[in-house]
Simulated scan of single mutants.
Amino acid sequence: MFALRDDDLERSILGCGDGTASFNAEVTAQGGKVLSVDPIYQFSADDIQQRIRRVYPGMLSQFARQADQYVWRHFRDPGHLGSVRMSAMNRFLEDYPSGLQAGRYVEASLPELPCFDGEYDLALCSHLLFLYSDHIDLQAHVEAVLELCRVAREVRIYPLVSVDGRVSQHLPAVVRELGERGYDVGMERVDYQFQKGANDMLWVRSTAAPEENTDD
């Protein structure tokens, strides 16, 4: 969904709203550097596992009821989707205690991230901004994206549609605001698509030249 290449995985990465995804665990195992931030990281592994067990059956039922809203290309059916997601969540749970101790999982949320300016090469945000446009207003979207731009040299956001499958009403204004602030902004078609209409990601890059390394 983020069109990541091998060289992207060698960069320092911030994952915003990562939840129970296995991305941090998998990239770390390959020697990469990832910080994941999410409010859910205030809870223990046991608490998160219990929550997964509670919501998992309902999640499968919802996908089955709304199957016509999705593209069944990467997943055969709701059962296959559930199996893949449960595998990813189990991988996360295996990694979570050690990752929490190492500081790779941090309780935080937009629009305030506990990171230095330009600390990360790449910030990724999936299934949060734009998707919930009915609950997150335009100003909150602008503040969130600007915060991501503050801490990372490049930002990628996916998807750009709301839960109804329509392009978010906030997208044009967010793109315009970023352009007026001097950022390079664009959209890229990605190979991943599950929700119908969700086949583009937004990328934002700083136009500022990198500082030269001057050692005393």
Rank of each mutant, 00 (worst) to 15 (best):
A3G: 12
A3Q: 07
A3L: 04
R5D: 10
E10I: 01
R11W: 02
L14T: 01
G15T: 01
G15E: 08
G15W: 01
G17A: 09
G19V: 09
G19E: 12
T20H: 02
A21C: 05
S22V: 13
A25V: 10
E26I: 09
A29F: 00
K33L: 02
L35H: 03
D38C: 14
P39G: 08
P39S: 07
Y41L: 04
Q42S: 09
Q42W: 01
F43W: 06
S44K: 07
D46Y: 03
D46T: 10
D47P: 00
Q49P: 00
Q49A: 13
R53V: 10
R53G: 07
R54D: 05
R54I: 06
V55E: 15
V55F: 06
P57Q: 14
P57S: 13
A64G: 08
A64D: 10
R65D: 07
A67P: 02
V71R: 14
H74M: 11
P78N: 06
G79E: 15
G82C: 10
S83C: 07
V84A: 13
S87R: 15
N90L: 14
R91H: 04
F92G: 03
L93G: 09
E94Y: 02
E94V: 10
E94N: 10
Y96P: 11
Y96G: 09
Y96W: 03
P97Q: 10
S98L: 08
S98I: 12
G99N: 04
L100E: 08
L100Q: 15
A102V: 05
R104E: 09
E107G: 04
S109V: 04
L110A: 14
L113Q: 01
Y120K: 12
Y120L: 07
L122H: 09
H127L: 04
L129D: 11
F130R: 01
F130D: 05
S133D: 15
S133T: 13
I136M: 12
L138R: 13
E143L: 10
E143K: 14
A144F: 02
L146F: 06
V151G: 01
A152I: 03
R153P: 02
L160A: 12
V161M: 02
S162R: 02
V163W: 04
D164V: 06
H170M: 00
H170T: 03
L171F: 08
A173R: 15
V174Y: 07
V175N: 03
E177N: 11
G182K: 14
G182F: 04
G186A: 09
R189C: 10
V190P: 00
V190M: 03
F194G: 11
F194V: 05
Q195W: 12
Q195N: 11
K196Q: 12
K196G: 04
G197R: 12
N199S: 13
N199K: 09
N199Y: 13
L202W: 11
V204K: 03
V204T: 04
V204C: 03
A208G: 02
A209Y: 00
N213F: 15
N213R: 10
D215G: 04
D215A: 14
D215K: 08
D216C: 00
